[in-house]
């Protein structure tokens, strides 16, 4: 993948803007923009992970919210039980270095099993079976009374990160931004690797890959698992940002929104998912402040993007 010079300029400018966001927010007297920025970073991580599946491998998953939710609930549930555990576990259960990796591993492990089943299907059936599994997780968390069920689970305090005060929103914003940069660099490496080339090949023509002696299944499963793990990290950040997890995070409309972010940003463009997520988060916030009927504006925007701007925001930046 080669970025055009205009794209590189926009990319550098965007990250500079993000890095300076807390100062800008302070200068214009809108400290809430920092939270909005954190949210955009978190959703960008989730959207970028979905883009690995949808854009690179050609696997349109309609159940990606499940991994986001599982990551969030892993952190939430461990913190919930922390006080019942004896030392040293009670400390570990609220440490970011201990629970965040778990929030990646739990969804990834489940994705290995579910992915192995889902990948037996393709096309529209794949869309539907991923939706089915996500709905099962949704109903599971609605039914789990211990963890709040439909009411959601409140996280008393953010996961402990050495040197960062739990209520420092600006510091947490930088944590989210750093996570986003790391994830994007990782995904870029993946894209440039042999593994990424195989995934590209699978998307373009699966039969040809088989003809040259590559079995697509392990590659697709690996992409599925990696993507779920990264979404789990986004979930861990999400629950920490709002100090709250609820089954809403696993609902099918959340899966739909993630898909919208990816396509809005530009399918398969990696950096695009970030712009798609940011655009959706900001659009959401702006429209909801403007009118209670904000969905009547958002709906046609989505239709217009699909019909008129197929290459998404990132593609539009690239020019011809």
């Amino acid at each position: 993948m080669r970025e055009s010079s205009r794209q590189i300029f926009v990319l550098v400018a965007s990250f500079a803007l993000l890095a300076a966001l807390p100062w800008i927010a302070g200068a214009v007297g809108r400290p809430d923009l920092v939270t909005l920025g954190s949210q955009a970073c978190v959703m960008a991580i989730a959207a970028a992970s979905l883009d690995l599946l949808m854009g690179r491998t050609g696997l349109p998953s309609f159940g990606h919210a499940a991994w986001l939710g599982l990551g969030a609930y892993t952190v939430g549930i461990l913190a919930f039980h922390a006080r019942d555990l004896g030392p040293p576990w009670d400390q570990w259960a609220v440490q970011a270095w201990a629970v965040w990796p778990l929030a990646v591993l739990v969804p990834a492990a489940l994705a290995a099993v579910i992915g192995a089943l889902c990948l037996r299907t393709s096309g529209i059936s794949f869309i539907m079976i991923t939706l089915a599994f996500a709905q099962m997780f949704f109903f599971l968390f609605v039914a789990l009374k211990t963890y709040g069920g439909d009411d959601g689970l409140t996280l008393r305090r953010r996961s402990t990160i050495p040197g960062i005060a739990p209520r420092d929103d600006v510091a947490f914003f930088y944590v989210c931004l750093a996570a986003l940069v790391l994830v994007l660099l990782l995904l870029r490496r993946v894209a440039a690797s042999r593994f990424g080339t195989v995934l590209d090949g699978i998307r373009q023509n699966e039969r040809r890959m088989m003809a040259i002696g590559l079995s697509p299944f392990p590659y697709k499963l690996a992409a599925f698992v990696l993507s779920a793990g990264i979404a789990g990290l986004a979930g861990a950040l999400h629950v920490n940002l709002f100090r709250f997890a609820s089954p809403d995070l696993l609902h099918w409309t959340m899966s739909g929104e993630l898909m919208v972010m990816v396509v809005l940003g530009g399918l398969g463009s990696l950096w695009g998912a970030m712009f798609g997520a940011a655009a959706m988060v900001v659009l959401h916030a702006v429209l909801a402040q403007w009118t209670e009927h904000w969905q009547i504006v958002l709906g046609p925007i989505l239709v217009a993007v699909v019909l008129l701007a197929r290459r998404g925001l990132w593609g539009a930046l690239g020019g011809k």
């Binding site: 349109p60 969905q295 958002l298 709906g299 699909v306």
Partner: peptide, 16 residues
Amino acid sequence: LDQVLATFGVILFCNE
């Protein structure tokens, strides 16, 4: 994928 997204937009519009 495009179909799912565009008709998702139609749902939001119709509901509102």
